[in-house]
Amino acid sequence: MSSPEDRPRSPYDRRTTVIARTVTRLVVPITLMTAVALLLQGHNLPGGGFIGGVLTVAAFVLVYVIFGVEYLVDTVNASGDRLVGAYRALFAFGLAVALVSGLVPMVLGGEFLTQAVFFIHDLPLYSELEVATALAFDLGVYLTVVGALLVIIAEVGYE
């Protein structure tokens, strides 16, 4: 890990152009927003946890490629190992969310992974909101995919 003293003049230079870096700064937030939108709208429109997850990872990969591994590490002020640890925790948590979302219906007397749809009426703006419990499961899928792929990319990227 580079310490402040032996860093190059422009720490995240990595032979990438100003254009690439500027575009990345603009694109990454949009990509992440799109990914979350894909996750949330997946039940009714194209999208879903898996696609949203992979797109999120693609945004991270863009950061990795353009700014380098050190940028992320320095930004979150953690060591690379801790970062991978966080990714690992992410997919473990995702699996747990998916599993628990399957177990809850069993407690309520249903079968494993039974999904239900609730309709909430009389809300301001929305008037009627459709809430699918499948969203919880999809969130688990999303987190697992993001965590697992990031672990793989971070580990391979370090090489």
């Binding site: 997946g42 429109l45 999208g47 999904q115 749809v117 499948a134 999809d138 899928v141």
Partner: peptide, 20 residues
């Protein structure tokens, strides 16, 4: 009604298959 269990309740059949 206000709660559905037997139906997927989603417009995206692919995703309903995946998660439900």
């Amino acid at each position: 009604g206000s709660v559905l269990v037997d139906w997927g309740g989603g417009g995206n059949a692919v995703n309903v298959i995946l998660v439900d």
